[in-house]
Design a binder for these strands. Structure first.
Length: 235
DNA sequence: TCCACACTTGTTTTTACCTCA
DNA sequence: GGTGAGGTAAAAACAAGTGTG
């Protein structure tokens, strides 16, 4: 406590109810003695609320009014709560910073992949322009005929990119159809990246459960699980 | 009616800064 | 110029009051 400073010793103490006070005209508010505080703190550690009977006991023991004990516990709970809030805030802020930096690095990674894709597309277009893949392209179009109306409807430029990508997949030996979700991400055209549905990177760094658990080392999220969700704190 | 909580008030203590011998 | 004592304003901590559910 801050009030253990040396000046306290030099101040004139009165001992009416074991409460320390200074020489002033108005002694409405007297600080409790160190011993009283110590006992109250000790009790608060074991139980943050006092039963009425226990309250009377404590008051008698410390030479205080039961109301004083009740108020002390009330104020203590309030102080404890605000302290707790401060701690929770710093934890959340730290976690946010970690996530933000991960998002940034993922964005960069994504950008790199998009550039790589564009380069590959460029390379693949060259043979087409020389008329070497005409038949293959025709057959591809017939296979994907329905996709123009279905799930993969995109803007012209996107559509072109998507089509050439699929061509490249076939030309390179194929990528499984299960990758369709990843494909969409790879084309890099969903600017509003969604944390939850975000495609997992190759090393699984973001979505591994261990990583996520480490954000909650203090059980912070557990504490808010009744009524709050983590996104409530997202601003 | 009693109790706990949030918010406020009034007092005390601590801290930081300044002046002066 | 460096240092310690004394004064002072602002900030922090505290006990208690008030209003409300």
């Amino acid at each position: 406590m801050m009030f253990d400073g040396g000046d306290n010793n030099t101040q004139e103490m009165m001992s009416v109810t074991g409460i320390s006070t200074t020489k002033t005209k108005n002694n409405n508010k007297r600080r409790f003695s160190d011993q009283q505080i110590k006992s109250l703190e000790l009790m608060f550690e074991s139980e943050t609320r006092l039963e009425p009977v226990k309250k009377l006991e404590v008051a008698k023991e410390l030479g205080l009014h039961p109301r004083q004990v009740a108020i002390w516990f009330q104020n203590k709970r309030a102080r404890w709560k605000s302290k707790q809030l401060e701690q929770d805030y710093s934890i959340l802020q730290a976690n946010y910073n970690i996530l933000a930096s991960k998002l940034e690095s993922l964005k960069k990674e994504k950008q790199g992949l998009v550039i790589q894709l564009q380069k590959l597309n460029h390379l693949l277009k060259k043979p087409e322009e020389e008329g070497q893949c005409c038949e293959q392209v025709t057959s591809m179009n017939s296979i994907d005929g329905e996709s123009d109306q279905g799930e993969g409807v995109k803007s012209d430029s996107e559509g072109q990119l998507s089509l050439s990508m699929e061509r490249s997949e076939h030309a390179l030996g194929g990528v499984s159809d299960d990758d369709s979700g990843t494909k969409i991400d790879c084309f890099g055209l969903q600017e509003k990246l969604n944390f939850i549905s975000m495609a997992e990177p190759a090393d699984g760094s973001l979505t591994s459960s261990e990583e996520w658990q480490s954000f909650d080392s203090d059980g912070l999220f557990d504490r808010y699980s009744s009524g709050y969700e983590w996104w409530d704190f997202w601003s």
